[in-house]
Amino acid sequence: MKEKAKIKLGISIGDLNGIGGEVALKTFEDSRMLDFCTPVIFASNKTISHLKSTLQLDIQFTGIPEPSKAIDGKINVVNVWKESPEIRFGVEEKQAGTYAIKSLRAAVNALKKDDIDVLVTAPINKKNIQDKDYGFPGHTDYLAQQLEGDSLMFMVTDKLKVGLLTDHVAVKDVADAITPELIRKKVMLIQQSLKMDFGIRKPRIAVLGINPHSGDDGVIGQEDEQVMKPTIKALFNEGHLVYGPYAADGFFGSATYLQFDGVVAAYHDQGLIPFKTLSFGKGVNYTAGLSKVRTSPDHGTALDIAGKGVADESSFKEAVYMALQIFKNREEYRELTANPLKKQKLKR
């Protein structure tokens, strides 16, 4: 029987002055990682050589003209640019953002053409990527435009999976942004992702309140009473296992999250502060709801430690594992849904 081809895992290099290149290459210093996938880095031979030498990394790589030519058992590098951009570790500057976007665009284009199977993105700086051709606040919004589906920022570990109603929205605008339609849309995206991407047949989902104590029955704001509760009740009455709204402090403080397969946070910090506190170094940022699989580590560019060789690659490695597993889960889900007699194999 012919051996099944390894999953081609694309990597966008991120901000050149940050730790993205370091954690990506450190991940594959462990040659056993090449047993699981075929990595394809979108940068240039010269850039990767410079990172390898400067950070004294024990890796070997091979340059390829295009991602479709990737070689199993090798760290492959696609030459997205020919020049040798200066890398100034720890410096926030426009040039680093320009090359981060070049890498991202090339990787996403390869993903769309199925030249790679999944994508792991190294961290970018949301400020220095901005120009007339790229007006997105981050990866998620760009991917939503480029790939089919509605994107959802989904922070995941084995025991905790947190999705956001609003992600990069100013706190002062959060309450106005949350509508019954948005709640329904995000809950259904999370539910579908838990089924398709994580193999959970009947996911239980908790929704966190907007205000402290979920509004204390309207004493602290009316949003939870007028928007959250009716929408959650309607979803539950339709047969979805959706509960809440829960006060965020007690929900995480008492480990109630362990009783649920997914959690919906109202806004960025409400979800990400407890997630990173509980899972930092092991968490993965997954963009759910798209036609393709994209993950990233749960940290930023870390300019303060860039170039020092001390960056921890754990989260990037988890992002690699997660991308591979979701890709396999999706294949199994498609097979199971195409054959109803196999559906019972899905988890509970």
Rank of each mutant, 00 (worst) to 15 (best):
S193K: 12
Q146A: 14
R184E: 15
N285S: 09
L104I: 14
K8V: 11
V120Y: 12
L147V: 11
Y134W: 14
K345T: 09
I48F: 00
A107Q: 12
V320W: 00
D269E: 13
L235Q: 09
P123S: 06
A24D: 06
K186V: 04
K282Y: 15
L336P: 00
V293N: 00
Q226D: 08
G97C: 03
I273P: 03
I273M: 14
H240T: 03
P67G: 11
L208A: 13
S314T: 12
K4E: 10
D114L: 00
P137V: 01
A122V: 05
F42W: 04
R334W: 11
M188W: 04
N79E: 13
Y267F: 15
E29A: 12
I200A: 02
A255K: 09
S12C: 04
S68E: 13
I200Q: 07
L336M: 15
T256V: 09
K102D: 09
E223P: 10
G63I: 12
T337D: 04
C37L: 09
S31I: 14
L324F: 03
F236W: 13
I116V: 14
I124S: 13
S315F: 06
Q192E: 15
H213E: 02
Q56D: 13
D72P: 15
R201P: 03
K126Q: 08
H139I: 09
S296G: 07
F42H: 01
